[in-house]
Computed example of a mutant assay.
Amino acid sequence: MSTTLKIASWNINSVRARIGIVEQFLRSESPDVLCLQETKVVDADFPAAAFQDLGYVHQMIRGQRMHHGVAILSRIPLHEDRHHDWQANGEARHVGVRLDCGIRLENVYIPAGGDIPDRALNPKFGQKLDFIERMTRWSEECDCPTILVGDFNVAPLECDVWSHKQLLKVVSHTPIEVEALTRLQSSNDWVDLGRHFHPAPKRLHTWWSYRSPDFSKNDRGRRLDHMWATRDVAAQATEHHVHEICRSWLKPSDHVPLVTEFVL
């Protein structure tokens, strides 16, 4: 008998500040597992009870004060909590678990990389590239069914941004970042589930800057958030949705959630 698995991923940009819309989303979509990035809270202050009240009693969290932070909240058991220091400085940017079905679920928040796309002038940009390179080395050794989700902070395809020409020199869409992410993807033949279900050049944005008074009016979005899967797991995926409506909710994140459904 087949079972379904529904996984959501969302850069929430402070889980405590936006717990209201997280609860709204969970009540509406009822994913089995929710992966959050940029929780911005130490573990002791994480709003665990709010998730428990909605049935997400299995929780793997890794946070730090005011910055970064990742969490996996689940209605189904989680095992083998692990984290990788791909930033090589102790920042809370990854947490991974194993599900009962044997699939590994890896939740990552790749650094934004600052504003200047030059390693010599901007150390944050170099840290971002090094982070992706460390992920690539890990990916080469990844030998089990795996789902990799999170805020990758890279929009790789021309159609993943509102203007390829205008953003070529803007961090998140520069050729060097795209090349780095492409190497990561090819290192284990990852399937980009977003583009698997919504092939290029279809519009598919997941982030809009707060600087725009009305994000929907000029629609200057980018696809910074991703869900990838190893080939064996991708073959079991049945649907993938970007919940753009969440960007218009009260006190929104600048990112919106992604949801993929699988039949196992």
Rank of each mutant, 00 (worst) to 15 (best):
F125Y: 04
D43G: 12
V41D: 02
F152R: 13
D45Q: 14
H205C: 01
E261Y: 00
H164Y: 10
I110E: 08
V233N: 03
R231Q: 06
I103K: 04
R203T: 12
G96P: 05
I72H: 01
L73M: 08
Y210D: 09
R93A: 08
V97I: 10
D43W: 03
L184G: 00
E29V: 14
R183G: 01
R75D: 00
K165L: 11
R27D: 14
E29K: 14
G55T: 05
Q166K: 15
A200H: 02
G69A: 04
M135P: 04
T4M: 12
P257F: 06
S186L: 03
E80P: 05
A49I: 15
S187I: 10
V171R: 10
D45H: 12
E29D: 10
R134S: 12
H173E: 05
S2Y: 09
P77E: 02
F262G: 07
A235D: 14
Q37V: 07
D214Y: 15
M66C: 04
S186V: 02
V41A: 01
V263H: 08
C144P: 04
V259G: 08
G150H: 03
N89D: 14
I147C: 04
D143W: 00
V15M: 05
Q37M: 06
P156D: 05
V70Y: 05
G90Y: 06
D115K: 15
V161Y: 00
M60T: 14
K251V: 01
L258Q: 11
Q24G: 06
V256T: 13
N11Q: 09
W207R: 11
L168R: 15
N13F: 08
G90T: 07
R16F: 09
L167C: 12
I76L: 11
I76E: 03
D254K: 03
A200Y: 02
L157W: 03
L168P: 04
A50C: 09
P117M: 08
Y210R: 14
K40Y: 08
V242Q: 06
D45C: 09
L167P: 09
R93K: 14
P111R: 00
M1R: 15
D192S: 08
V191C: 11
E158D: 15
F25H: 07
R222V: 03
H94D: 02
E91A: 10
G113D: 10
G69P: 05
I110G: 10
A8D: 03
